[in-house]
């Protein structure tokens, strides 16, 4: 089995397996959570919980100024990583080609130079986040094996993707294979780790926002 075979596997069967595990896992996780339900709130509300929930879904994305003083590095790195990962995932031309190929929709891409800068920033932010996790007493205390594993699994697609743009020292096939496999690893572990927050954070914010809004509190 040479690198070419592995690449073909990663582009075909491997991707299929990863996508199936991802979609099955995410659906199970969401349904087993959502179907736990909530008791209806019988207290007379001050305002609509539904609207308040949606408001918090968006407002909680804004940086907490209260924490900016205490945890500025963590917040800034967190923003750079999340925005960077999102932009690179959805606005790099070959990625758009992938989505187009799978789902038939496409949209304009960003120039590779910009993608490259964003990738470097995101990787830098990830290392800052790791440093924070190791140095900060609270984060170190809370961290489990999963936190470090997920960190690595998030780094690999960015790193291999960056190296893919700079093939002088590496074979494109090897790096593309590594890139695809790292993405597949990310997809496979996604439903079983805290990566699920990418979906559930919106539920969490909605629940919290709705419960607070009924009391007339904006959170």
């Amino acid at each position: 089995m040479n690198i070419f075979d592995i690449l073909q596997w990663a582009r075909g069967t491997g991707l299929q397996i990863a996508v199936v595990i991802f979609s099955v896992g995410v659906l199970i996780r969401l349904l087993e959570m959502w179907m736990l339900n909530r008791k209806p709130d019988l207290a007379e509300p001050r305002a609509s919980g539904t609207l308040g929930g949606w408001r918090t879904v968006f407002t909680r994305s804004a940086p907490s100024m209260v924490l900016m003083k205490k945890a500025g590095l963590l917040l800034v790195s967190g923003y750079i990583f999340h925005l960077g990962f999102f932009i690179v995932l959805f606005f790099f031309a070959p990625h758009i080609r992938l989505f187009h190929n799978m789902f038939g929709v496409s949209w304009p891409a960003l120039p590779n130079g910009i993608i490259e800068i964003i990738t470097i920033l995101s990787i830098g932010a990830l290392f800052a986040l790791l440093a924070h996790r190791i140095m900060n007493p609270v984060q170190r205390f809370l961290s489990t094996f999963q936190d470090y594993f997920v960190w690595l699994a998030s780094l690999l697609p960015l790193l291999t993707g960056y190296l893919l743009l700079h093939t002088s020292d590496f074979s494109y096939s090897q790096m593309l294979t590594a890139h695809l496999l790292s993405v597949e690893l990310l997809l496979v572990i996604f439903p079983f780790t805290k990566l699920m927050h990418a979906f559930t954070t919106f539920f969490s914010r909605w629940y919290t926002g709705a419960m607070a809004a009924r009391k007339g509190v904006t959170v």
Binding site: L15, V24, I28, L31, E32, W34, M35, R97
Partner: peptide, 28 residues
Amino acid sequence: ALSAPTKDVANWAAIGVAAGAAIGVAAG
């Protein structure tokens, strides 16, 4: 394109969603 899958992924994703929904409802 090299970045695109060589095999059908969208339909497998759809099957995954359907299977996940079924198992998820059972788990729920």
